[in-house]
Simulated assay, not measured.
Amino acid sequence: MTRPAVTPDWAFEREHWRRGYFRVAGVDEAGRGAWAGPVTVAAVILPGTALEYPFRDSKQLTAAQREDVAAEVRRVALAWAVEHAWPDEIDEKNILGATHAAALRALARLEPRPQALVTDYLKLRVDVPISAPPKADALSYSVAAASVLAKTERDRIMLELDAAHPGYGLAAHKGYGAPAHRAALDAQGVSAVHRRSFAPIRARLDPPSPLFATSPGQEETA
């Protein structure tokens, strides 16, 4: 039996509202586990009122629904921003460090500035109060809104990368470790948009590179 989708609410935002922090930014990322392309982070400040929105965790929506919801997020948000960390930054900082850096860049672009944050378990070092519960993209309207912006923007980029680097199927699997992606890597080798510090890519370098050692936060999925 399929479990019903979780509906977001304002519980985490209300905790900040009660303390007088009304501009609460939701933060979420897309593409953290992919082998190619950027990790994309969005930050969104919604109006500080307990309205109901059609915003959901991006994984609960179809591609067409995500586009519609993304347009609605941009329409109603007090502020929003999307930033990317590309493979060279991921290889330099590891995936967690690069995700944090992109998140901080997105937050710095918000105007008005956020007074508090809710993130999807992304424990950022910031000078405002932060809530970082797991699965926040399914629980918080603000984080759900950010998840949709991050996902739609990253999908758009992966379509462009697919055209620039044909044969890998990036438009279909979005850079994740699908069997077709593995087969394409074996046939074509590593491209300029692959994350060379990730174990499945590092193992396919010719010759294998000793430059990337496993570090905290580094993705090592085979």
Results as ranks from 00 to 15, higher is better:
Q188I: 03
A132M: 01
A163C: 02
L110D: 02
E52F: 01
I201A: 04
T62L: 06
W10M: 02
Y141E: 00
A30H: 11
W17G: 10
R18P: 06
V193T: 02
A116C: 10
P129K: 14
A145W: 01
S209E: 05
V6Y: 08
T40V: 13
I90R: 04
F212Q: 01
R202F: 09
L139N: 07
L96E: 02
E89W: 09
P114F: 10
V148S: 07
R74M: 12
V69K: 02
A102F: 04
E13I: 02
R113M: 08
A103R: 05
A30Y: 09
A103H: 03
L205E: 07
P134G: 03
T49Q: 14
A5T: 14
D137C: 01
H84G: 00
R14S: 14
Y141L: 00
R3K: 12
Y21K: 12
S142M: 07
G97W: 10
E92N: 00
P54K: 00
I45G: 10
D186I: 08
L46A: 00
E111L: 07
P47H: 03
A50C: 15
A222S: 09
T62A: 10
L124A: 09
I157H: 01
D28K: 02
R202A: 12
A30T: 12
A222D: 12
S140G: 01
T62W: 07
L110E: 01
E89N: 09
P208V: 09
L124N: 04
P112N: 03
A43M: 03
H16P: 03
A5Y: 04
A180C: 15
R113D: 04
T7F: 12
A81F: 02
M1I: 13
Y176G: 08
A192W: 10
P133H: 02
R113T: 14
S191A: 11
T7N: 00
A184C: 15
K123T: 15
F198N: 02
G26M: 01
A79F: 10
V143K: 03
S215Q: 13
E160T: 12
D206V: 12
R154W: 06
Q218W: 05
A192V: 13
G33A: 03
M1Q: 13
L107T: 10
L211Q: 08
D127K: 15
A138F: 06
D127M: 15
P47G: 01
D155T: 10
G33E: 04
W86D: 08
K135C: 11
A222M: 08
T2Y: 00
T221P: 06
R19I: 04
P47K: 07
A85E: 04
G175W: 07
H84F: 13
E219N: 12
G31E: 05
P47W: 03
R156L: 15
E92D: 14
E219Y: 13
K59R: 11
P47T: 06
P207D: 11
E153T: 13
E72G: 04
H165A: 09
W80S: 04
T119I: 01
A36G: 06
L117S: 05
P166R: 08
E72P: 05
L149R: 07
F212G: 02
I95F: 12
R182W: 13
P200L: 09
H181R: 13
T99Q: 00
